[in-house]
């Protein structure tokens, strides 16, 4: 029983650590500054969103 508790606690710590480490990089933009930044159907839009999509595809493609 004690082993399980210790394991569970260790697992919880490990999970928490993983979540912190794996937290995604978050970038934020204006929702109403056309044509640079916008929001349509809940999704970021505009020139900057297109820049970022393309830049990320190049980073991932390296």
């Amino acid at each position: 029983m004690l082993k399980r508790v210790v394991y569970a606690a260790a697992l919880a710590c490990a999970t928490a650590a993983t979540v912190v480490t794996a937290a995604p990089i978050k970038l934020v933009q204006d929702e109403a500054y056309a044509p640079y930044m916008g929001l349509e159907n809940g999704q970021p839009t505009g020139i900057w969103a297109d820049f970022i999509d393309e830049a990320l595809s190049r980073v991932e493609g390296e």
Binding site: D30, A32, A49
Partner: peptide, 22 residues
């Protein structure tokens, strides 16, 4: 990576307070 669109004042605050990276 997560990209979010919010009112500009909120975007500024999210980064200033450490809730977003950029």
């Amino acid at each position: 990576m997560v990209l979010e669109a919010v009112p500009w004042s909120r975007a500024v605050k999210l980064v200033e307070t450490g809730q977003a990276h950029g």
